[in-house]
Structures are given as structure tokens and as C-alpha cells.
Amino acid sequence: MSTTTTAPSAPTAVSRRGDSVFAGLATGAGLLIMLALAGVAIFLIIEGIPAISASGEQAYGKDNIVVYVWPLLFGTLLAAVIALLIATPLAVGVALVISHYAPRRVARPIGYLIDLLAAVPSVVYGLWGRAVLAPAILPVYAWLADHLGWLPFFDGPARTGRTILTAAIVLAVMALPIITAICREVFLQTPRIHEEAALALGATRWEMIRMTVFPYARSGVISAVMLGLGRALGETMAVAMVLSASGLVTINLISAENPSTIAANIALNFGNASGTKVNVLIFSGLVLFVVSFAVNFLGRWIAARGQVKA
């Protein structure tokens, strides 16, 4: 021991205080998030409860809240499911092109482009759907009604392009970049050794993809689709702008009489609502919250289960 050092305990108090203040701030931020989410649920419930007893004029002329919300929920699910039926195969194809088919030089800019398209605001998609897609697709609906009218979906009559099918197509276009982005990531994560093992056995590219990429990516793709579904369920503006809604339950996709969706219905009616009508709309929002929560939860659960297995 050459030097006697004074015990370096002087800075103790200072650094300890800094630590506890900082840790407190961080924990507080975390707790605030819990509080915020609890707040979302609680405020929606408080403001939604008065709607349960609403009827007649207060419930937009419906007997009770269930009769009011059900057609909206039906429309929400219908539009979202059709959108996913359209978007999923396309998204998987595009993701496959980016991850395995296109040369690197091309794949990268394409991926870039898809990411940018995911950022386009929904209101712009809505504008496009209303002003461009709806008029352009009307002849197709007319053709469908003429030739496939015996199917209940295409009963027609096709008088407007602003149908639930158009809304679903717009939703599909919106969900496409999101699903593609996740699928691409999952496809790219396939272990190289698996792919090379398949190729070394003399597999063609498609056989390699079917043998290694798809089994590995299955849960990732499913959860991507669930996330896309959650997004499509909650999407407001695109539907509100595209759809010419009359709020009934039908599976006729191309007529002028279309079911509405919860989110679009709130957006279109909230401005003029007053009294219990506000509560009715908030109640429908609560239903939407629960449904999209369930879908998202399912998606993450599948993703988590897949990760454990991998």
C-alpha cells in the first residue's frame, strides 16, 4: 500500500440520486403507458355504457344497440376479409419476388418502394379509390353482373363503382405493402444452410422454396396476415370515402346498397351526432377495439408460438 487514499465515497450520494431520479422517470414513462391504455378502455366503456339502453331515435332508428351495431360489424368483417383474400396471395408473391426471384440489384429498390407505399396516408388511398378506382372499375362490375350474376356476390345491379368490393380492393392495396414487408423479412430469415441443403439435393428453385422457405415462414406469414387484417378492420378513411353505404347486411358485393363499416360509420356520423347518439357511436368503437384487439392478439400469439418452435 503505497498511498493512503481517502475513501471515494463523496460522489456516492450524488450519483445515487441521479440514478434513482432517472430510474424513476423511466419507470414512470412505463406506468404512463399502462395508464394510457387503461384510460382508453375505461373512457370508452364509461362513454359507451349509456348506449346500451339506447333505442329508437337515439340509436339511429334501430330497436336496440345490437341491431344497430351488428350490420356495421358484418360490413367491417366482410370488407376486411375480402381485402385479405385479395392481398395475401399478392403479398406473398411480391415478397417472394423480392426475397428469392429478383436479382439483388432490382430487389432492393423494389423493397424500398414497397416500404414507401406503406407510408402513404390512408386518406390519399381513399381519395384514389373514390376518384380513380371507382369509376374505372364500374364496367368490370357491369360485366360481372351480366355474366356471373347467378352468383349471390355479383347479383348487382352495378350502378356505382363505390361498392363494398371497391372498398375491399382499396383496403387490399393498403394492406399489401404491410404484409409484403413482413413476409419479405420472414422469407429472408430462412437459414441459408437449409436452402443450400435443398439445392444441393438437386431441387429446382420452386422445390427449394416449398421445402425450406414456406415451412420455416408459415407462422410468420400467418401473423403478417393477422396484422394486416387488424389494420384493415380499423381502417377508417379509405372506406368512409369510397363506400356508398346504406347499412344493411348483404353479401351482394357490387350493388349500390352496401353494408357500412364501424370505423367509417363513426367518421361519417360523428360530426353531426349529439346526445346519446355520441354514446352509440362510441359503443360501436368499443366493439371495434375489442375485435381488432382479438385479431392482433391472435396474430402475435401465432408469431410467438412459431418463434419458440423455430
Partner: peptide, 19 residues
Amino acid sequence: VDGQSLYDPSVDPVAVRRQ
């Protein structure tokens, strides 16, 4: 270390690491 026990409750680990 130098007559002080490192694991004494009053010792600050941050200060220990400076030495």
C-alpha cells in the same frame, strides 16, 4: 482493499470501479 471492505453496505459500487 486498502483496509475497506468492498462489500460493505455503505460502499458505492460506482466509486469502487473508479478506483
